[in-house]
């Protein structure tokens, strides 16, 4: 499996490192990893029909994975996946 750099927001890092190296070949692997850390979060990350949900945005190398292949987005060695709370707040 490819090794990717995962950057978590502090609310998900739970006092641990925000930046972690993990093995993942698609974005869904990352989601499973986060759900292992915080099982109650699954339905905030993906909808019942398996779509990326909207409490968090997932950026793969700076591109919102919603516009790639969603949870099926393929990852390769050295990719950076950054998870950011989906917040509004005007502009």
């Amino acid at each position: 499996m490819p090794k990717v750099r995962l950057v978590l927001p502090s609310i998900l890092a739970g006092g641990g490192d925000r930046v972690r190296e993990i093995n993942a070949s698609i974005l869904k692997d990352i989601i499973d990893y986060i759900c292992d850390l915080k099982p109650e979060i699954r339905d905030r990350l993906i909808s019942p029909d398996g779509e990326l949900n909207r409490s968090f945005n997932f950026y793969v190398n700076g591109v919102n994975a919603y516009f790639l292949k969603g949870i099926e987005t393929e990852l390769k060695d050295g990719d950076e996946v950054s998870v950011i709370p989906a917040l509004g707040g005007g502009c």
Binding site: V7, P9, S10, R18, N57, Y59, G62, N64, S82, I84, P85, L87, G88, G89, G90, C91
Partner: peptide
């Protein structure tokens, strides 16, 4: 787009002691 600018700002807010008015002090 704005959304990418917002993402960068959100990352910056997580990493620095800065108040991004529409992110961490929203």
């Amino acid at each position: 787009t704005y959304d990418e600018a917002n993402w960068i700002a959100s990352r910056f807010a997580e990493e620095e002691s800065i108040g991004i008015v529409n992110v961490n002090i929203r």
